[in-house]
Design a protein around this nucleic acid. Structure first.
Lengths: 208, 208
DNA sequence: TAAAAACCTGTCCTTTAGACCAATAGTTTT
DNA sequence: AAAACTATTGGTCTAAAGGACAGGTTTTTA
């Protein structure tokens, strides 16, 4: 088990040292291969300054290529959601604030060493918001379609357009599946949609 | 600090007991208020059987109403992404398998008691797939998707994403409906789409 | 207030989708 | 040459979707 901190700060940050006294620190990702035990469980902790986006991308790719089994954690000076998304989608298993206290760092380590993924509550909330609701900027043209629907039909239609099943919609809106079907049927009728897939395409149409 | 397990099983599950010897167990959410210390840090562990979707929803809402500061964890017998999504979007802070070993449960507790959120790697990956619109170039993303498909799969996927039925696709491509299904199945597999509607949403995603 | 629209639910039935299992044959990669 | 991938088709089976037909209750509106 090895922890390797990649940070421009020579000394490393205080809380890191506190959490992992035996950690190696390096200024670049080009860690001497001899320092890394083959088949060891290695965690790379990348310290992310502002304005090093492309450095981060490259670093992650390089690590993943050289050390296939290594886990990568990003600690950002100024965490932001876009960067977090980017990092996580590249396979990073944790994204947190660089000034996280030592106990958070040890927590992260525990979680990821058991195959888990760690991220803060606000980020997760954001992720879920984004992925469960239709994007706002299209609300305009969606309205054109939706305005001919009744309130309830609208609600059902929006959920259906996200890809939810009738059962799921029923649960969310606290009505029976049968009622969901009724609303959908009349929605198809009004909008001239063939089925729920066409409805989804109508409501998710790209702005041109 | 109190742990309250809500489970239909009278005795509670083995690993739970192992992890939290002092935990209270109850069959319903209607825990006697006297048993809960005011201002205590309470964690509700909800044991989720199959086919209790609406029970879960109600239980969560009830807990959130009665115990504003309580954290809620869902342990599912048969975890699935839709349910996980639903639970997390309602404010649940962890979602895991009901048969998780004791060390995972203690991990979860550690994480959420520090304000974090716990979830398994596969769920997160799925979340990110669904919400990658924030992560970068959308056209690129679609390309990435299509690139991983074979020539024939691509043709079928594109038609399906337009809203055509299997029968129509079969006619257009001059193959049997059965073959269309086969191509679609492997396409869903490769792209991580749940069904043709999700496929359509992936391929028709608008740039944000 | 009476009619209309919206909302909710039920049963029965047909079609469609998609998973699982299995097989054949050509092509590409190792 | 063996292994892996691709394209094709078949059958069975389950669940979901959606139409047809038939009710109710609540809210809006003329």
């Amino acid at each position: 088990m090895q922890d390797i901190f990649i940070s421009p700060l020579e000394t490393g940050m205080v809380s890191w040292m506190e959490a992992f006294a035996k950690a190696k620190i390096s200024a670049t990702v080009q860690v001497s291969p001899t320092k890394i035990q083959k088949n060891a469980f290695v965690i790379f902790w990348l310290h992310m300054n502002e304005d090093r986006q492309e450095w981060l991308t490259n670093a992650i790719q390089l690590i993943q290529k050289k050390y296939v089994n290594a886990k990568i954690v990003v600690l950002a000076n100024a965490p932001n959601q876009a960067e977090a998304f980017h990092a996580m989608s590249m396979g990073v298993v944790a994204y947190s604030h660089a000034y996280s206290p030592a106990f958070v760092l040890t927590e992260i380590k525990t979680v990821i060493s058991h195959g888990g993924v760690w991220l803060g509550q606000d980020l997760l909330k954001r992720i879920i918001e984004v992925s469960t609701s239709l994007a706002g900027n299209q609300a305009e043209q969606v309205n054109q379609h939706l305005k001919s629907l009744t309130k309830r039909e609208k609600e059902v239609a929006v959920e259906a357009a996200k890809g939810l099943s009738n059962k799921e919609i029923a649960r969310i809106l606290k009505i029976t599946e049968r009622t969901v079907k009724a609303h959908l049927s009349s929605t198809f009728e009004r909008l001239g949609a063939k089925d729920r897939l066409h409805l989804a395409l109508m409501l998710n149409k790209k702005p041109t």
